[in-house]
């Protein structure tokens, strides 16, 4: 059997103040899957995602990326797993759009002309080409989100982990990000997305994991799991209530 690209074994995380943020998390995510992790505010979504690229390390249990423990080789884990933060403002480190996208590849030590080609291609792909010399702080919310995604894609990761990628976006913004994700998914990238608004993505996902109070309370095919989400403080998609099935959000 093929190794899962992401795996957590009995993962537990306790914060410095003694509070447990995660308890007994067992997850196996295969390469190429589109997984949605849902949970109410404070259920531990962000905490869980941060374990996948070693921004947090387990208090108990283990986290494996492509078969190797994250804590044994942080750099390797971060090359494979890239993360789009919940708060775009705090993810942007570059002074111009172009710098921001180049930041990751520069850290990987690629040659200069290769970085340039990679950055150009990524800017093109995310529709940010015309903004390359703008200061990121002058971009709109949707453009900033696209920029953080571009910064992550330029790293050529195998897994992209997104924390609430639709928050603060208007309809065209959501549409653009969602289309980008679907395109990545078609190209066999593994996508793990956290959200409390299932409406927009759940119809595209192959798997839905529900977190509540730091524990996994449901895990399976979206149409099987979706019926139980309301009890964990997540609003079920309207299409489920009206038509009894999950409808794609993009029409």
């Amino acid at each position: 059997m093929k190794l899962p690209i992401l795996e957590t074994i009995n993962l537990g995380h306790r914060f410095a103040n003694g509070r447990w943020g995660l308890k007994h998390i067992d997850l196996r995510i295969d390469e190429g899957q589109f997984v949605v992790i849902a949970g109410a505010n404070g259920s531990g979504k962000t905490t869980l995602l941060r374990h996948f690229n070693g921004l947090l390390l387990p208090t108990s249990g283990r986290v494996l990326v492509d078969g190797i423990e994250v804590s044994k080789d942080l750099l390797r884990a971060r090359k494979i797993v890239q993360m789009v933060f919940q708060d775009t403002e705090s993810q942007i480190v570059g002074e111009t759009v172009r710098d921001e996208v180049a930041f990751g590849p520069e850290n990987l030590g690629l040659p200069r002309d290769k970085i340039k080609a990679l950055v150009d291609k990524t800017l093109e792909q995310t529709g940010l080409k015309s903004l390359s010399d703008t200061s990121p702080h002058l971009l709109s919310g949707g453009e900033k989100r696209r920029l953080t995604i571009a910064g992550v894609l330029a790293m050529k990761p195998r897994v992209v982990v997104l924390d609430e990628p639709f928050s603060n976006l208007d309809y065209p913004g959501v549409k653009m990000v969602l289309e980008q994700l679907l395109c990545l998914h078609r190209r066999k990238m593994t996508i793990v997305l956290c959200t409390h608004e299932l409406e927009k993505v759940v119809a595209y996902a192959q798997r839905l994991v529900v977190l509540s109070k730091g524990e996994i309370v449901a895990d399976g095919q979206p149409d099987k799991v979706i019926g139980s989400v309301e009890r964990y403080g997540i609003h079920p998609p309207c299409s489920l209530k009206c038509k009894g099935c999950l409808e794609p959000w993009l029409s």
Partner: peptide, 9 residues
């Protein structure tokens, strides 16, 4: 965090 996540060196 943002810098570490993108393999800062």
């Amino acid at each position: 965090w943002a810098m570490e996540a993108r393999c800062f060196t």
